[in-house]
Amino acid sequence: MEAVMTPTNQSVATRILVVDDSRVVRKVARRILEEAGYDVAEAGDGAQALAQCHVTLPDVVLLDWNMPVMNGIDCLRGLRRDFGPDEPSVILCTTENGADFIVSAIEAGAQEYIMKPFDDAILIGKLEQLGLTGRRQ
């Protein structure tokens, strides 16, 4: 669909899909992201996330590692298979913080990695590091 340029929609919110089996984590992430001007969607596992991406491709997927049905790494591999190496940007998110986990995430095609628990400074900082502010031009 072609965007119509009007004074109210010259900039569009960056779309972020938050994927986590914890409703609490999704809620916290949604609050942080919406306050910063991002447009947020949610999925409860990797399979749901992949299906949603085939309907509307977000700019970024904030992807939990350990989830039922389909874990984060398998979802990430599916995203790279279906949409290529660059889109959407993926930030893998987990309590695992060893260097080997981070290497695995990058090798599987993640752009970034954050460790739980995260706060607004870390999450927004990572998005800005990827050049993704709350509202894109």
Partner: peptide
């Protein structure tokens, strides 16, 4: 190390 530092540089230049 999560603030501003790309993950790729974290694993390349830091040791846990």
């Amino acid at each position: 190390v999560q603030r501003g530092l790309p993950a790729r540089m974290l694993v390349k230049y830091f040791r846990k």
